[in-house]
Simulated scan of single mutants.
Amino acid sequence: MKIGVIGIGVMGDPIARNLKKAGLHVTVYSRRPESCEPLREAGIDVAASAAQAIAASDATVLMLPGHGDIDAVLARDAGGRIGIPVEGKTLVLMATVAPAYSQALERAVGEAGGVYVEAPVSGSKTPAQTGQLVVLAAAADAAQIDALQPAFDAIGKRTVRCGAVPGAMRMKLANNLLLIASFEAITEAVHFAGAIGLDVRQFLEMAQAGPLANDVLRMKAPKLLADDFERQAAISQAFKDIGFVCDEAQALGLWLPAARTNRVVFAQAMRRGQGDEDVIGVIKVLREGEPAAMGDGR
């Protein structure tokens, strides 16, 4: 299989490396050419454009931050039509987007003669590096996922099949609601423990020995102890994703108090310019104390 990866960053870089390690022919493209140079040195082909990467590949992974970035790379016009050739090609969206956007993109790819597979991944920088992501896959035809399974196996420990689009995106949002609540709860508990005079290290050791011990706690505990805000999962991504959750909930008339609160907390971190920091950076918001007015986090 020849596979492309468009969007080379915290996730795209290790995904491309693991695909190559599995023996697939990989071509990458980034709007920041410098981010591709380490991959070129590792023997991975670098395309000069998104169209070139797609043309060189049977299937192309889109690992881009948001709707506008995806539209720009695919040269979508005001009517949503794709402006670069994708006929006979498969586009695999691994970014997290709004379910309605994913459905619209599926229509656009189909109208352009291509195949669309929704495949957001659960996991951040370290699971991406170790090939331990969880792939959530949805497509019009299960055979389209079957064809991609070797690539999914190269980057992930499990593929969860979620039916038709936007089933995988909705599954990802439900997962991220739980994950973001966990990030904030761990951070808030550490802030509380320190404020009431506990030995924070001892508190975290106790927590990791108890019933709530999990990979998230093990990963974030040393970062919290060191005030290490280097990005694993970015505040900007968490803010975007919890916004999608809240928008879906509002459309369905659902009351999700934890999600709404986290939207406000992460919005405050964004206002402080912390978008590129790791999610535990919201502890800075907590340390500042409750603002006089925070709005609804939009």
Rank of each mutant, 00 (worst) to 15 (best):
V109D: 05
L133S: 10
A140H: 05
E106N: 01
V109N: 02
A119G: 07
A138G: 09
G114I: 12
V115A: 04
Q132L: 11
V135N: 13
R107M: 10
L133W: 12
V134L: 13
A112W: 09
G113M: 03
Q129W: 00
L133H: 12
G114N: 09
G110A: 01
K125M: 09
G113R: 01
R107T: 15
V115R: 09
S122V: 12
S122P: 00
T126H: 06
Y116R: 01
Q132V: 02
S122G: 01
V115T: 15
P127H: 13
V117L: 11
A112D: 07
A128E: 07
Q132G: 08
G113D: 07
V121E: 05
V109S: 02
V135H: 10
Q132P: 04
G113A: 04
R107E: 15
V115S: 05
E111Y: 04
V115C: 08
T126E: 14
T130F: 08
E118F: 08
A139L: 08
A119T: 04
Q132K: 14
G110I: 07
E111G: 00
A140F: 03
G123V: 13
A138W: 09
A128I: 13
V109M: 02
V121I: 12
L133E: 12
S122W: 03
L133D: 13
T126P: 00
E111V: 00
E118Y: 09
G131I: 15
V117C: 07
K125I: 06
A119Q: 06
E118Q: 09
G114A: 07
S122T: 08
A137E: 08
P127F: 13
R107F: 10
P127G: 08
A128W: 08
A108I: 12
A137C: 08
G114D: 11
G123P: 11
L136Y: 14
E118G: 05
L136Q: 12
G123D: 13
V134K: 00
R107C: 09
Q132M: 12
Q129K: 08
A119I: 00
G113H: 06
A137N: 04
G114Q: 06
V134Q: 04
V115K: 05
G110R: 05
L133C: 08
Q129T: 14
G131Q: 14
G110N: 10
S124K: 01
A112E: 09
P127C: 11
A119F: 05
Q132W: 04
L136M: 15
L133F: 13
G110C: 01
V109R: 01
L136V: 11
V135W: 11
E111C: 00
V135E: 13
Y116C: 01
L133I: 13
A138I: 07
